[in-house]
Design a protein around this nucleic acid. Sequence first.
RNA 1: GCGUCGAUGGUAGAGUGGUCAAAUACGACACGCUGUAAACGUGUUGCCUUCGGGCUUCGGGGGUUCGAAUCCCUCUCGACGCACCA
Length: 396
Amino acid sequence: MVDKDKINELLTRGVDKIYPSREKLEEVLRSGKKIRLYQGFDPTGAQLHIGHMVGLRKHRQWQDLGHEVIFLIGDGTGTAGDPTGKKKTREKFFTKEELRANAKDYLAQAAKIVRFDGENPIKIMYNGDWLDKLTKVEILNIAENFSVQQLIERDMFQERLKKNETINLREFLYPLLQGYDSVAMDVDLELGGSDQTFNMLAGRTLVRAMKNKEKFVMTTPLLSDSKGVKIGKSEGNVIGLTDPAPELFGKIMSLGDDAIIPMFTLLTDVPNEEIEGFDLKKDAMSLKKRVAKLIIAQLYDDASAKSAEGAFSSTFQKKEIPDEIQEVSAKAGDLLSEALVKNKILLSKSEWRRLVEGKGVHDLVKNETIEDQNLKITESLTLKIGKKKFIKIKIK
RNA sequence: GCGUCGAUGGUAGAGUGGUCAAAUACGACACGCUGUAAACGUGUUGCCUUCGGGCUUCGGGGGUUCGAAUCCCUCUCGACGCACCA
């Protein structure tokens, strides 16, 4: 029973809830039975982010314990539009082609955490393979297992009802499709973020009805800091798994301190006992650096993690110039502003003016702030624009 | 099919003939502060500018007017209600 502690870890660490209960699942695992499980990813964005990493790591754990793990690409459900977390009806839907293209990227990114080859490799499946083939009658038979009341229970639908906002039938039916995946693959367990609970439980209902068996559902907590969903939000500050190491480091450092402990628990292998001993008040900075390094080491390697840290501290803490700077060539006599806009460093001359007025442009060679908006280029320059942009201007 | 309402900047959402490049909030960007690219504070947030101003924007097209995001017509899309069907 070498696996005993591993089973315990598998069932507790980084786990939000287990349905119907942890005890039932533990019983099955203790019996030595190998189960089949999956997690679905709708490839509706170009990249996986650090929030996905939580689930992927869980995947890996199952895989390492010898269970049959399926990485499901939701190219069928993706075209339907998951309403989870959406306050409004989704407006954009994805085509099959877009989804397949994204899926390719997903797999490449996921490969950083899970194994698609070697011993007990993860299987890749596409739910479009069966969802697209469902006949109308089959769909109705699936629908038979649900009541409108059940579907309408979802908080987000309730809210919309209250506000008299649209609930499109399409999003209403989405959980059924996702639920059918479990039937089609005949899985014993589904893994997913806690925001997916409703959809996953729909699958549970279906499996019971159509396969007469109990499907387990394991949810993982969502990674977030005090500001909420800063991590994995659709806006600019997504921490993508393929972000270059230095950028990853910076983005992780910019998260609130309250995200540190969850990150250790969910994204690293640091033992629980050690994590419990952490003193956030005293060591927040160094702990955050450590967790950032550990995360990067998983996505790249130790060396990248180290150099990312070095780059971070020299750039932001000591305010030194980074080693690698983007270069832009220009002719002598050109307006600096025009050269920057032409090379797409800045969006417009207006932006340039704003930055200069806000003292956001610095000449790093002379070590002074540039105040002249109409500065002409006379010699090669090294500029710091805002906090993050470093640009070298070279004379042609 | 009939009717009602709606479509505004990255998002949410004001504005209902000139004072509108369009409130407010969020986001984004910069500066200050900080162990931090956090928090907090301040400023900026359509484009061009000789800094006077100029130009293009409020679902598409057309019109009324000296003047339209605002009024009218029409088209597209959406929500809601009614009818049809059951």
